[in-house]
């Protein structure tokens, strides 16, 4: 009797086999169409005329200059947002002060503003006809159509990533451990370095990876401020567009493939760390 009831019993949270397969199929099909197919297309287009043709795209000053510029921008933007993100999350999560909700809204602003508008704002402020334009040209400082402008626009667009990753975690962790460190004689800085920072290291790493991926891939805001000077102010995404518009499809997709590869390496590194330190990650939420 009990065998029969066990055979027909289904957990109340489990759907029938047909429904389960249907849902799985829908999910897989959607993912394939939206993520896997475009990614495969990038690589297949790049390699359509053979690997030699794809590699030939990198035998070009302008391409290498774009790669260098993209890496330079990321190398400046990510540390800047790292410092800002940790400082902002720390202030928001651990202290009460007037204007706190305004600060949170400001941090979210780059997410809600179109990247093109973000770029335009910097042109309006720093461009030759902009607010500070006359002052800057008098001092012979070039921001728009130069590296500083690209860095500014990228920093703006990627500003929320690290702070947003840290704020909920730091709020949940509260201030008790820091207070404990202080009662045990640690200075504020020492408490931050030995208690606060280790407690957020995983969220911090995740935020940095996201921020880095976006910094290397940003198109809209950078397109407005860069001026598309080939070999000078073209980042990789902009270079892809130029090559594509010149009907150099293999070249465009080869550079795009490199960009995608950088993103995949980033994701791979994250997965590797999660797998390697999975216990520590789980421990974070266990108590």
């Amino acid at each position: 009797m009990s065998d029969v009831s066990r055979a027909t019993f289904r957990s109340p949270l489990q759907e029938s086999l047909a429904v389960r397969w249907l849902l799985i199929l829908v999910a897989v099909a959607f993912l394939a169409l939206v993520v896997l197919l475009p990614l495969a297309a990038v690589f297949s287009e790049a390699l359509r005329k053979g690997p030699e043709a794809a590699l030939a795209a990198f035998d070009d000053e302008a391409t290498w200059s774009a790669v260098t510029l993209t890496l330079t921008v990321a190398a400046i933007t990510v540390p800047a947002n790292l410092v800002f993100g940790v400082a902002a999350a720390w202030a928001i999560a651990k202290f009460e002060f007037p204007g706190k909700s305004l600060l949170i809204t400001l941090i979210d602003l780059p997410f809600s503003v179109s990247p093109v508008v973000s770029g335009l704002v910097f042109v309006l402020v720093f461009g030759s006809h902009g607010l500070l334009g006359p002052l800057l040209s008098a001092w012979n400082i070039k921001i728009i159509f130069a590296l500083p402008g690209i860095v500014l626009a990228t920093t703006f667009v990627t500003l929320p990533f690290i702070a947003r990753e840290l704020i909920p975690l730091m709020q949940e962790q509260g201030t008790a451990e820091e207070e404990a460190a202080l009662t045990l004689g640690a200075s504020g800085l020492k408490a931050f370095l030995t208690v606060t920072l280790p407690n957020i290291r995983w969220a911090l790493l995740y935020g940095v990876l996201l921020c880095n991926a976006r910094a290397m891939g940003e198109f809209g805001a950078v397109a407005v401020v860069s001026g598309h000077i080939r070999g000078l102010t073209n980042t990789m995404p902009l270079h892809v567009e130029i090559l594509y518009n010149e009907y150099n499809f293999v070249g465009a997709f080869a550079v795009a493939a490199l960009l995608a590869l950088l993103a995949l390496v980033t994701l791979g590194a994250k997965s590797l760390l999660e797998w390697r330190y999975g216990d520590a990650l789980a421990g974070k939420s266990r108590h």
């Binding site: 008790a176 207070e179 404990a180 208690v195 280790p198 520590a280 974070k284």
Partner: peptide, 9 residues
Amino acid sequence: FQHYALFRH
């Protein structure tokens, strides 16, 4: 502390 505030890491 009430919830001990041990350093979890």
